[in-house]
Write a protein that binds this DNA or RNA. Structure first.
Length: 229
DNA sequence: GCGACAG
DNA sequence: ATCTTGTCGC
């Protein structure tokens, strides 16, 4: 997937070959992690993109879908779908090397860059602090956050009410939050990807999830990928 | 050695 | 991710 870099919506760094082995992939994560910025969030977030990949049959056929939502109305204003084949196995910690290439190809098809990427997975809540959301944020230079359905770190259950949260920890770091988006449902796991703050990320997720556990960005992207043939 | 391990 | 029944709630 060497071409992934020159297909980005916005390219910011020197291209390098896509890895074919796990040690190579880990080295790339270690190298890129220093570029992540978590000190500021966008002043205004008008549009938010949801990204999801759906897998087909037993093969490595996949469908990558991106939906862009108007944050105020939560209506879908743009979509992109791409089909392809997985070029990297699923390895916990190396998720981005499997899903980023088709997602970048889908992002390229959007008519305009969204204000934030809401990724289906982790950002800094990652063994090397460089999950999918960080990776996509760095490659596109678009602010990004990660919203995972399961945790990679340790956490105490947050309060039962919507908006309650507790720190998500890995080793000795606070890497994200377990955030309750609806009363009586399992929390989601929010972490920063790039050019965002944890506080603003949780704020955005709550705005995107007024009714269901998962943000509308994730839900619409998931539905779009799933309804493709 | 054993369990854990985003999607 | 996916395999899967019934069940609860809107």
């Amino acid at each position: 997937m060497a071409g992934a870099y020159d297909r980005c919506v916005i390219r910011i760094r020197e291209p390098h070959p896509w890895p074919s082995t796990e040690p190579e992939a880990e080295a790339i994560q270690e190298q890129l992690r220093s570029l992540v910025r978590t000190d500021t969030a966008p002043a205004e977030v008008r549009t938010a993109a949801g990204l999801d990949v759906d897998y087909r049959e037993e093969s490595d056929e996949l469908v990558a879908a991106v939906t862009v939502l108007d944050v105020a109305s939560l209506s879908v204003v743009d979509t992109a779908v791409v089909t392809g084949k997985a070029e990297f196995p699923y390895v916990p910690g190396l998720f981005a090397f499997r899903e980023a290439p088709p997602l970048l190809r889908a992002l390229e098809k959007l008519s305009a860059a969204p204000d934030v990427l809401v990724c289906d997975g982790q950002g800094l809540a990652h063994p090397r602090r460089f999950g999918l959301a960080c990776h996509l944020g760095i490659l596109t230079d678009i602010p990004s956050i990660g919203v995972g359905k399961t945790a990679m770190g340790r956490y105490e259950p947050p309060g039962e009410e919507r908006g309650a949260w507790s720190p998500l920890r890995m080793d000795d770091d606070i890497v994200g939050r377990a955030l309750r988006t609806q009363r009586g449902v399992k929390p989601v796991f929010v972490s920063v990807g790039h050019r965002y703050t944890l506080e603003a990320a949780c704020d955005l997720v709550l705005r995107l999830a007024p009714r269901y556990r998962l943000p509308e960005t994730t839900r619409t992207a998931d539905h779009l990928a799933r309804r493709q043939t």
